[in-house]
């Protein structure tokens, strides 16, 4: 009797820990999305495909002998540049068009990148060879995969870094000014195009880093991004579009919902509570849990 209770509690604690760690990675992915949305009102439907590119890039480096953790800064930097290029030649044009152009345009980008990945890498599931950190860490009765711990911790550190950048640096302040009021920011002499490009680059760098971390435990395949992007949309909506703190809180919540739902309902149903949460929140509180207005 007591044993069963202890076991149930241990399982629950394990799930909560796993959910929170997963949530931290979601937070990093969602951070990029919410940052871009906050600064230029664009929901990047191709965000998950950026993540997928980052995962392939990490794989490529691993095949050259550079492991995911060492490769992380390289992949993040590559995605940063990629984001800037995409903004300069494409997103900038979408912003000049009708409002639905950004939805269609980033959606087209999703299809394009996903197709390219299929054409180049086939639909196979690929993993990093000789994955590091395959052991488990025991905290009393709770055993956690080392890779999950490193992913969670790494995501937390990177999220904190981006948050600090946006909050405390001059450029971050300019970014928030643009998010607040584009016209006023222009009048204050802020180069909105430069800030937009930077925000898009940082948004891509976030998934660049997240992609490298995820390769510690996930395989990569052409549609891997949509699964994470869908979660990120939900996280961003829950947290309030444009809110960084909101995204972090919502990501932890979604991580928990997904892991608990997957265990107590069934693995196929793990996304159900997440989607229901999205629908309930956008219908009852469209500004999100922590969003303003």
């Amino acid at each position: 009797m007591a044993d069963a209770a202890v076991e149930a509690l241990t399982t629950f604690a394990l799930l909560v820990a796993g959910g929170l760690l997963t949530g931290l990675v979601f937070a990093l992915v969602a951070l990029g999305l919410t940052l871009v949305y906050g600064v230029m009102d664009v929901v990047n439907f191709a965000h998950g495909e950026f993540l997928m590119l980052a995962m392939y890039a990490t794989l490529g480096l691993a095949l050259l002998g550079i492991g995911p953790l060492v490769g992380l800064p390289l992949v993040a930097a590559a995605l940063f540049l990629f984001g800037i290029v995409v903004y300069r030649i494409f997103i900038r044009r979408l912003l000049a068009g009708p409002p639905e152009a950004t939805v269609f345009g980033t959606f087209g980008l999703l299809v394009l990148i996903q197709g390219a990945a299929q054409a180049l890498f086939s639909s196979d599931y690929l993993s990093v060879p000789n994955r590091p950190l395959q052991g488990t860490l025991h905290l009393g009765p709770i055993a956690l995969a080392q890779s999950a711990l490193v992913e969670g911790a790494g995501a937390l550190v990177l999220t904190a870094l981006v948050f600090a950048f946006v909050e405390y640096t001059e450029t971050g302040r300019a970014m928030r000014a643009v998010a607040e009021d584009r016209v006023a920011a222009t009048l204050m002499g802020i180069n909105v195009q430069r800030i937009n490009a930077l925000a898009f680059g940082i948004g891509a760098a976030c998934v660049g880093a997240a992609g490298a971390l995820l390769m510690l435990s996930y395989p990569v395949y052409p549609t891997v991004g949509s699964q994470f992007a869908l979660t990120a949309f939900v996280v961003v909506a829950l947290g309030g579009f444009g809110s960084i703190q909101g995204a972090l809180v919502a990501a932890l919540l979604v991580g928990l919902l997904e892991v608990l739902g997957g265990f107590y309902l069934s693995p196929e149903l793990k996304m159900v509570p997440v989607y229901l949460a999205y629908l309930v929140v956008v219908l009852l509180r469209p500004q999100g849990l922590l969003g303003r207005r």
Partner: peptide
């Protein structure tokens, strides 16, 4: 998909 994606991108932009 590459071609559709490219067409959508061109059209959107």
């Amino acid at each position: 998909l590459v071609i559709y994606g490219a067409i959508i991108c061109l059209i959107a932009a």
